[in-house]
């Protein structure tokens, strides 16, 4: 995970975990690492991890079993929503940047169509 300074750290970690969920690296119902383990993994402050898990639970992406740990949700509906959320988020960022450099909607769609199949 590349650290970007203008977005809060915990949000960056959440984004990274969400990505892993979408790509299947983390499966529904899978147990996430403990606070300590995740902190060591990302080399971040354990307090940040607490925020991460709290926020993810608020977003219904994880649930906690007391004394055991934090788990990815098995709610299929929620998980499909996640994919949509992420796509919108990424798209939103891209669109903003393109608008900033004056790209029109047509130019953008045209370019996407051309490079989509070629891009890995």
């Amino acid at each position: 995970m590349d650290f970007r300074s203008n977005i809060p750290l915990y949000l960056q970690v959440i984004a990274d975990i969400k990505k892993k969920i979408i790509t299947g690296q983390l499966t529904p119902g899978e147990k996430l690492p403990s606070t300590r383990e995740l902190a060591a993994l990302y080399q971040i402050n354990p307090n940040t991890v607490v925020r991460v898990y709290n926020e993810m639970e608020l977003q219904n992406l994880t649930f906690t079993k007391r004394g055991i740990g934090t788990f990815i949700t098995e709610d299929a509906h929620r998980l499909s929503l996640l994919k949509e959320e992420m796509a919108k988020l990424l798209a939103g960022e891209l669109v903003k940047e393109l608008k900033d450099i004056g790209y029109t909607k047509e130019e953008f769609l045209d370019t996407v169509a051309r490079i989509y199949d070629v891009t890995l």
């Binding site: 300074s5 203008n6 809060p8 750290l9």
Partner: peptide, 15 residues
């Protein structure tokens, strides 16, 4: 707080 400083100032602690 590190997070707040980063957000308020829009830059990393290093910067």
């Amino acid at each position: 707080a590190a997070e707040e400083l980063r957000m308020e100032r829009g830059k990393s602690i290093v910067d």
